[in-house]
Simulated assay, not measured.
Amino acid sequence: MNHDHYDDAYLSGILTSVRTIAVVGASANASRPSHGVLGYLTRCGYETYPIHPGLAGQALFGRQVYARLADVPVPIDMVDVFRNSDAIPALAEEVLQLAPLPKVVWLQLGIRNDAAAASLEAAGIDVVMNRCPAIERPRLLGA
């Protein structure tokens, strides 16, 4: 996969096929991008699962916050990540322990780790890096 350019059909295919999205690094702080993106995805009708160890058990946008991906009680279609690039290898390992595996790992703007992406793709997981679904969805789907 060329992570320097994504075909619009690839991105829109992801955004129209996923239903459950875990947002790693979700924040209760309304000024944080992870807070706004979580709210947007929830309003768009995705079944969202905020992930943040310090907020576990609380609710954001009416959705229970979980400490780790493994705590989410349903299969996750997409993992949307708000963590720095250095944290991605450990997160990739956590993702690869899930059963079933998610279809997609989406790394937010400014986040890229090619080695971790390669390990996820080797397991059959689609990867998007340095993009935001809250930007791509309205651009591609008009909503």
Rank of each mutant, 00 (worst) to 15 (best):
H3P: 11
H3S: 10
D4Q: 14
H5M: 10
Y6C: 06
A9W: 01
L11I: 13
S12H: 06
G13R: 07
T16K: 14
S17K: 13
V18C: 10
R19M: 03
T20Y: 00
A22C: 07
A22H: 07
A22Q: 01
A22W: 06
V23N: 00
V23K: 01
V24Q: 01
A26T: 13
S27P: 06
S27Y: 05
S27N: 07
R32C: 01
L38S: 03
L38T: 12
R43D: 12
R43K: 13
Y46R: 03
E47M: 11
T48S: 03
P50Q: 01
H52Q: 07
P53N: 10
A56V: 01
A56K: 03
Q58C: 05
G62P: 06
Q64E: 09
V65K: 00
Y66V: 01
Y66W: 11
A67V: 05
D71L: 08
V72C: 01
V72K: 07
P73I: 06
V74F: 05
V74H: 10
P75C: 11
D77G: 11
D77K: 08
D77L: 08
V81D: 05
R83Y: 10
R83S: 12
S85Y: 00
S85T: 03
A87S: 15
A87T: 08
A87K: 09
P89Y: 04
P89G: 11
A90I: 02
A92Q: 04
E93M: 08
E93S: 15
E93T: 14
E94S: 15
L96A: 09
Q97R: 15
P102L: 08
K103G: 03
K103Q: 14
V104M: 05
V105D: 05
V105E: 03
V105C: 09
W106N: 09
G110N: 10
N113L: 08
D114Q: 14
A115W: 04
A116K: 08
A118N: 10
A118L: 12
A118C: 09
S119Q: 15
E121S: 12
G124E: 06
I125L: 08
D126I: 07
V127A: 04
V128C: 09
M129V: 14
N130C: 12
C132W: 08
A134P: 05
A134C: 15
E136G: 11
R137I: 13
R137A: 13
L141A: 12
G142I: 10
A143Q: 14
A143D: 15
